[in-house]
Every structure is written in C-alpha cells, then in structure tokens.
Design a protein around this nucleic acid. Structure first.
Length: 421
RNA sequence: GGAGGCGUGGCAGAGCGGUUGAAUGCACUGGUCUUGAAAACCAGCAAGGGUGAAAGCCCUUCAGAGGUUCGAAUCCUCUCGCCUCCGCCA
C-alpha cells in the first residue's frame, strides 16, 4: 500500500511511476476521496470535541449535585448527528482503503522500463552450456521411464496439475527440499519455520495476493481461509501488527511449504508435466530489514539463491524484471531461470523481490529506530527455490544417454544415491 | 461439538457509567549521587489521524465489530483469540 500522504503531496509523480507498471492507473479518484474524507473528518472531530466537553461539564455538575437535565435534549441531537457522521466516515474510509489496496507498488528508479516480459533485462547468464551429445528427453518422458512421477494417478486423485511423486521421485523431491533448507541454514543466518498452509484473508492482504488476485487462490468456503500460494504469506505475517526493535533487524526467516495456485487464466498453457502445477513445494526466504539496507539485501538474496543452482550444476541466468513485468507488490525483482534442455526453454525457479514498505504498511509491520521513532520496515522475499521446475531441469540436464540420471554431488548425501536408473 | 472462565500500555496488574490515555509495579530512557558500577532518588516513557513553521491544540484507540446512554475500559449483542473440563479424533 502506498502512503496516502505521499499520494496527496505528489500525485502526478507517483502516478507517472505507477504507469511504468500499468498504463491504465489513475489516482484521481483516490485524491478526490481523500480530500472528501478529510473534510468530513474535520467536521466530525469538531463535533466530537464539543460533545466531549459538554459531557464533561455535566459530569462535574452532577458530582456537585447540580445536574441540569435541560441540556440533554440538545446533546441528544448532537449525539445523533455525530452518529450519522461516524457512519458516513466509516463507509468512506473503507472505500478509500479498498481503493488503496488495489494500487500496486511503485517501481524503483533502477528498474528498467518496459511494457512486458520481452523487455526484461538479462543481468547475468551463468550457463556453461553443458553439452548433451544426444537428443535430450523431456522431464515428462524421463519421469515416466524411471517411474518417478505418476501424472495419471495424480490427475485421478485431484485433477490435472497435481503430480504424484513416487519412489525415487518422491525421494528426489524430499532430498531437494532438505538440501536447500540445510544450505540456507548452514551458510546464512536464517530461522527455520514450519507454517500453517491456510491463512486468514487479512494475511493474504498484507502480502498483496488479496483483494486483487482472489481468483488465483484456493479458499475454503466455510471457514473463509485461503490456501497459501507461497510461504511468504505466513512468514511475512508473523510480524503483522508488531513493532520490532531496530536492534532486531534484519530478521531472516525461512520455510518450506506446499504452495497452492489455481493458475486461473492460464488454462491450456503448460498443461503437461511439471512446468505449471496447482500444488508444489518451495523453500521460501523472507527478510525484514531496515529501509536503508533493503536494496543491498535484495542483491544478497538473489546471490544466495543462485548458489543453489551452482551446487545443483544447472545452467541459469538472472533476469532483471522490467517495470511492466513486475508483480503487484514488488518495487524491484530478479527472476532466476534455469535451462531445461529437454523442453528447450528457460524455466523461472525463483523470484527475489524487494517490496520496500508496501507489505509492511498493509500488514502494519513496523520498527522503532534509535531515536524511538516508529516507522515501517522493508520486507523482501525470494524463492530458494521452487522444486517442480528444478526437478524438471535437473532430470533434463543430468540425463545420460542410457536413460539414467546422475545426481549432482551436493545432492548425493540427501539421496543416498549417485544416480537414478 | 457441549459447559464454563478470561482478553487493559513492552510485560505484570488496578480500574464505582462522568477531567481515565488509563493507578501501581517491573522493564526501558535521561539526570542526580559514585573513581566506575550497583543501589537510592528525580524526571520521562503508547500508537494512529487532523491542524500548525513550531510549541501546542483537537480527535480516535482498553481483542475486533455493532448497540444502550448526554457520556462506555466499565452495561448489552455478535465475532475472534486464549485457558479449563467433557465428548470426538490424528
């Protein structure tokens, strides 16, 4: 959420910035609603002040046994006027807040300007272009040949997009998760969590999934809970409504979780295999940091995630997203993509974003600085990493001509195997 | 699912429907004292909004949302959370 005060003071500047993300955005309605609301607030405050004062006087008189009931009728009228204004105020604040919740975050100045993913910038290509001197199979064929995933059974149980990992496939999935968690814990100062997978609406508003992307989320009708699309949601909301001490920052949190995505609007795209599924596992990294350090933290976050790819011996590149491709809540974002030689395409396996104070404002996550001043902190998150596409790229990259898969050395202790055949 | 209890400032814990944003204690911050520290003593110590150059002034907030009343932390209703007992269950 953008601070209404900023919008008020520099509407055109902010609007121009937002249009780098989405050309159709206008702040006119918001500014008008804000002016309107403040007028109402002032009127209401004045009346409340009057009411408070007069009620106090009555109290004093009464304590002296000199109560004068003749003013009651007048005050009753005032009281009713205030009630009406309060109703109006409530309604109008809610409307303004709802409008603000629909406004995306402002892209950072360093973000390249562009309308779509075509204008994303390849920041670094770290692929070694490992030679495969035979026609590589797709991960779907490999998984079927080695009996790692039963897509049909998954579809029977839950529908398309719910892969059923089996045997060494299930083992590989588990190994990947454990390897990644251990790597982050061993090398960086993270606290591990295991979170709820269902969250309240409020939590999904904090991180920016709601209200705008309601259609993308699974939710339970009776209890009005939402299945998390990423552990970012519960992790970030750990500090909902908290005021942290500056000495507690930065805080680094990590969790593996199942992630649930309806993928509404992408029917027919990547329907086969592991490239786009409704449920997958992801190790998520979340940072709560001081506002002055958040861009340094973003660089280190992205770097950290790439180390996993190095250790898994995968070809990857780092993409700097252009303004038009930035997600709703992000001010700046790097995507990591791995090369899948069977599919012959780059697969997004991680998104590392700085949200600045966008989420902290929504979730009321603040810190007290050295001077005792309270302010919103900055939040970041990054996948470290999402398994299904890693799983796919790993099979396709490390396949051998005889159909077997060589397990990267870093993963072997977790598999107890050096190859799958 | 049934029965009951509870929810007040960073924490603990008062609070008769009327200057209660809220006693008191602890913690914290500043000061006095001390060679230094501790102790003692003094002072300060919520967040949000509006207005203002600032000091200040005004408003809101005692889990959340409504209601009663001239006036609500205090009374009523609902919701949420926590605890205890019973039932069910991994």
């Amino acid at each position: 959420m953008i601070d209404i005060k900023n919008i008020r003071e520099q509407q055109s500047l902010i609007q121009d910035s937002l249009r780098k993300k989405d050309k159709s955005i206008s702040l006119d309605n918001i500014v008008e609603a804000d002016i309107n609301l403040r007028e109402l607030t002032k009127k209401l405050n004045d009346l409340q002040s009057e009411q408070n004062q007069q009620s106090k006087e009555i109290g004093i008189l009464k304590s002296q046994g000199k109560s004068d009931e003749s003013v009651f009728a007048k005050l009753k009228k005032l009281s009713n006027t205030i009630k009406d204004l309060e109703d109006e105020h409530r309604t109008k604040s809610k409307i303004l807040k709802d409008m603000l919740l629909e406004i995306p975050n402002i892209p950072h100045d360093s973000v390249p300007i562009g309308a779509s993913e075509k204008e994303n910038v390849i920041k670094k290509d770290c692929s070694k272009k490992k030679k495969i001197n035979f026609k590589p199979k797709s991960h779907i064929d490999i998984a079927q040949d080695l009996d790692l995933i039963d897509f049909e059974a998954g579809a029977k149980i839950s529908g398309a997009g719910f892969p059923l990992y089996k045997g060494n496939g299930a083992l590989l999935e588990r190994a990947l998760i454990n390897f990644m968690i251990d790597f982050h814990l061993k090398n960086y100062n993270y606290t591990e969590f295991f979170t709820p997978f269902l969250v309240k609406e409020k939590s999904a508003i904090t991180t920016g999934q709601l209200p705008k992307f309601y259609e993308d989320m699974y939710h339970t009708e009776k209890d009005k809970l939402y299945l998390i699309p990423t552990a970012e949601v519960p992790l970030t909301n750990i500090h909902q409504d908290d005021i942290l001490e500056v000495s507690d920052l930065p805080k680094y949190y990590l969790a593996n979780s199942a992630c649930f995505r309806r993928e509404a609007g992408s029917y027919g795209k990547d329907t086969k295999g592991l490239l786009r599924v409704h449920q997958f596992n992801k190790v998520e990294l979340v940072k709560f940091v001081h506002p002055t350090s958040s861009y340094d933290e973003l660089e280190s976050l992205a770097k950290q995630a790439t180390k996993i790819l190095d250790l898994l011996e995968l070809d990857y590149r780092i993409i700097e997203l252009c303004s038009g491709d930035l997600s709703f809540a992000a001010a700046k974002c790097y995507d990591l993509e791995v090369w899948a030689p069977g599919e012959e395409q780059w697969l997004e396996v991680s998104s590392c974003s700085n949200f600045e104070d966008f989420q902290s404002r929504r979730g009321n996550i603040r810190f007290r600085d050295d001077n005792g001043k309270v302010d919103y902190l900055h939040t970041l998150n990054g996948s470290g990493l999402a398994t299904p596409r890693i799983f796919a790229a790993l099979l396709e990259t490390h396949q051998n001509k005889d159909g077997s898969i060589t397990i990267p050395i870093a993963l072997q202790p977790y598999m107890g195997l050096s190859e799958i055949k």
